[in-house]
């Protein structure tokens, strides 16, 4: 078996045996379900907890199913990304710090196989979580609010998946660069959230940006998507992912000497 296969098997066993393969998708499914359910029961919940005078009639506009799906994505953008960062911050930095990497690095190890095995495994779990969460969320949305055009749903999911690939690449490159898991988390969170904040505040000036992919994903539901901006943003994201992976491989090789002996 080639090194990539051997190392991917190791990553698979790790994620299986520390239950990441189960708990991360479970959390995404929960988030996906709770959004439509809580939306649906919001009037009743407010009714039962709020001390409203007799006879008050609260009018809530029932959300469109598309809005519910976009709201699920909103949950993933905050809690979901945080979970990915916390789950994979130490995947390289932690191995170096604890010294478990030493026995790998002292062998004729291909660092591209090493980094890619981690990238592929984290990507599989992240995409599995996001898609299972979307599907579970859509099932509930469909039951409670109605259906969404299937193609638009797929476009929505695929566009968001591209953004998730970028997030995973950022986390892994940070883990390769930083001396420990905590700093890797801080750097990833900083890049992911601060850049989004900046893009949100000033982003009207540049329609082409990887950071706009989540917004573009939701735009599939509204017919208001400039295809040229969209494809340029996707291409830019793709290039960034490749760049981050190459940087990650080079840095993990360069910093191999910092593993604890």
């Amino acid at each position: 078996m080639n090194q990539f296969g051997v190392l991917l098997k190791k990553e698979w066993r790790e994620n299986l045996r520390n239950y990441k393969l189960f708990w991360i998708p479970a959390v995404f499914i929960l988030l996906g379900i709770m959004e439509p359910v809580s939306n649906y029961f919001l009037p009743q919940i407010l009714d039962s907890v709020g001390n409203l005078p007799e006879g008050t009639v609260l009018e809530f506009p029932e959300p469109e199913p598309e809005q519910v799906m976009a709201a699920i994505m909103g949950q993933y953008q905050l809690l979901g990304l945080l979970i990915f960062v916390l789950a994979y911050m130490g995947t390289i930095a932690g191995e170096r710090k604890s010294g478990t990497a030493t026995l790998l690095y002292a062998r004729p190890l291909s660092f591209s196989a090493y980094f890619m095995s981690k990238w592929v495994m984290a990507t599989i779990i992240a995409l599995l979580s996001v898609w299972l969460g979307f599907l579970a969320g859509y099932y509930y949305t469909y039951l409670l609010f109605g259906s969404i055009d299937f193609m638009n749903l797929m476009r929505f999911g695929l566009t968001y998946s591209f953004w998730i690939l970028l997030v995973i690449s950022i986390i892994l490159a940070a883990s390769a660069l930083m001396p420990n898991a905590g700093l890797a988390a801080a750097v990833s969170l900083g890049i992911i959230f601060i850049s989004q904040l900046v893009d949100g505040l000033l982003g009207t000036y540049w329609p082409i940006s990887p950071l706009k992919l989540p917004a573009y994903a939701a735009s599939w539901f509204e017919n208001g998507l400039d295809m040229s901006d969209f494809w340029w943003s996707v291409s830019l994201t793709f290039m960034l992912i490749v760049l981050l992976v190459v940087i990650g491989i080079l840095i993990s090789a360069k910093k191999a000497a910092s593993t604890k002996v």
Binding site: N18, Y19, F22, W23, A26, V27, I29, L30, I33, M34, V37, F41, A136, Y140, L143, L144
Partner: peptide, 23 residues
């Protein structure tokens, strides 16, 4: 109806708890 809708949520919650406790 609420119960039926929330049953999967409860199952996943319980599952998470059991996995965590076993670990």
């Amino acid at each position: 109806k609420l119960l039926l809708l929330l049953l999967p949520v409860l199952i996943i919650q319980l599952g998470l708890m059991i996995f965590a406790l076993i670990d």
